[in-house]
């Protein structure tokens, strides 16, 4: 069954969608959308370094994404506004990454594959890494769900309940780095943030509890992956962007329906 490249691509897309959905909800609730972007952009530097050092792309991207995420967390509230800080770091990392790639003259690499993903080239090994990462992220988020939610709602409330909001923030950051690393192959660094945010945002109107929102987001993400891939196959369009297009269309349609049912009531 896994011999078929479309099957592998679909499984890869669904895996990323499942990991990104609950994480994306926290990214939306905590207004960290740009944070996801910054982590993803830094990953291209990781890709360049992995190619230079001949180590796994997943490992290189994850390490750099993690360093980026921890740096941002550490620097927040030390003189610069969050968006300025992220703007400086994200684009610097992307620029340094692109420059670093140009030094790798000995290796032929397809930069587009890392910027926009190359889901149709997912190998069995890639698939194992993607699902391994996705399961790890889902396990982390499920395990810490209550604590993450409390820390998201109110820091003092978390402290008073014996939780450490800084630790929860670190867990979120770690999960984000893992997701970015495994999603590079699927949607590429430029569109990872879209897989985090769009399904979660689309699910908002349909959910009455945080858990429901994460569940609906996972479903929307999975549908986007499957339908996007089919669309890419039929219309011969790039796969990663097609997945994001479907998610965006679902976002628009669901919002219209919610809006109409609210104004009709």
């Amino acid at each position: 069954m896994l011999d078929d490249f479309m099957t592998r691509a679909t499984l890869a897309g669904v895996g990323v969608a499942f990991a990104a959905a609950p994480l994306g909800c926290f990214v939306v609730w905590r207004r960290m959308a740009y944070f996801g972007d910054a982590t993803a952009h830094a990953a291209i530097l990781g890709v360049a370094l992995s190619l230079a050092l001949q180590i796994s792309i997943f490992a290189g991207a994850m390490v750099v994404a993690l360093i980026m995420a921890v740096t941002v967390t550490f620097l927040t509230g030390r003189g610069y506004a969050m968006d300025t800080l992220l703007g400086v770091l994200a684009h610097s990392a992307l620029a340094f990454g692109l420059v670093a790639v140009s030094f790798l003259s000995g290796i032929r690499i397809d930069l587009m594959a890392y910027l926009f993903g190359d889901i149709l080239a997912v190998s069995r090994l890639d698939l194992m890494v993607i699902w391994g990462g996705a399961i790890l992220v889902i396990a982390l988020v499920v395990w810490r769900w209550s604590a993450l939610l409390t820390a998201t709602l109110n820091e003092e409330l978390a402290y008073a309940s014996g939780l450490d909001p800084k630790r929860e923030q670190l867990i979120l950051t770690l999960s984000l780095a893992i997701t970015v690393a495994v999603a590079i192959k699927v949607v590429g660094v430029l569109l990872i943030a879209a897989m985090l945010i769009i399904p979660a945002a689309a699910a908002r109107g349909l959910a009455r509890t945080p858990e429901a929102m994460a569940g609906v987001a996972a479903a929307i993400g999975a549908v986007s992956a499957v339908a996007g891939l089919q669309g890419a196959y039929i219309f011969d369009t790039p796969a990663g962007p097609s997945i994001v297009c479907v998610a965006a269309i679902l976002f628009a349609v669901l919002n219209l329906i919610t809006w109409r049912s609210q104004s009709g009531a």
């Binding site: 609730w29 939610l149 409390t150 998201t152 003092e156 945080p210």
Partner: peptide
Amino acid sequence: IGYVPQRLHIDQTLPITVERFMRLT
């Protein structure tokens, strides 16, 4: 400790019922 914070801002994007909030911790 039962803690009542000064103000609790719940982001527009976060759906949560009173029941779910009561069970937070």
